[in-house]
């Protein structure tokens, strides 16, 4: 390894990432349906059987509740893929713009907004679990 190789490698990295951006790869990906959100959750959380799910109006996040209404998961768009976290009901709050989930993980995105989803939608998903 020398400085020429290091510089050349850095240039190649920027060129390849730039090519991916220029080709519009992985752009404008959204959560297309509740089925897609449920599928992502069930493949990420062992034993989770989705009872219902709701996708934010902007397609950037979703919530899924298991059949018993006990477990809840948030789905977020991560680049061209979806990433999932199981959260507690206390981490979910209703705001004027929609539901906000505080994942407690800064690197995961911290607070994730599920736009256009309200408390009523959540009650429909899990009547016995959504308090307040």
């Amino acid at each position: 390894m020398n400085w020429l190789m290091l510089g050349g490698s850095a240039a190649a990295i920027l060129a390849l990432s730039g090519a991916a951006w220029w080709l519009r790869l992985g752009r404008d990906v959204k959560i297309g349906s509740v089925e897609e959100a449920a599928d992502a959750v069930e493949h990420s959380l062992p034993g989770f059987v989705t009872g219902g799910a709701v996708v934010g109006a902007d397609g950037l996040a979703a919530l899924a509740v298991d059949k018993r209404g006990e477990r809840v998961a948030v789905v977020k768009r991560h680049g061209a893929q979806l990433a999932v976290r199981e959260v507690g009901w206390k981490q979910i709050a209703a705001t004027a713009d929609g539901i906000v989930v505080d994942t407690g993980e800064k690197r995961f995105g911290g607070r994730i907004a599920v736009a256009g989803v309200d408390q009523l939608d959540m009650r429909r998903l899990a009547p016995q679990s959504m308090k307040a």
Partner: peptide
């Protein structure tokens, strides 16, 4: 990927 399925690459992931 550009021709077949553009979700198979993501610039930030590549970077």
């Amino acid at each position: 990927a550009w021709a077949k399925d553009r979700r198979r690459y993501c610039p930030r992931d590549t970077l």
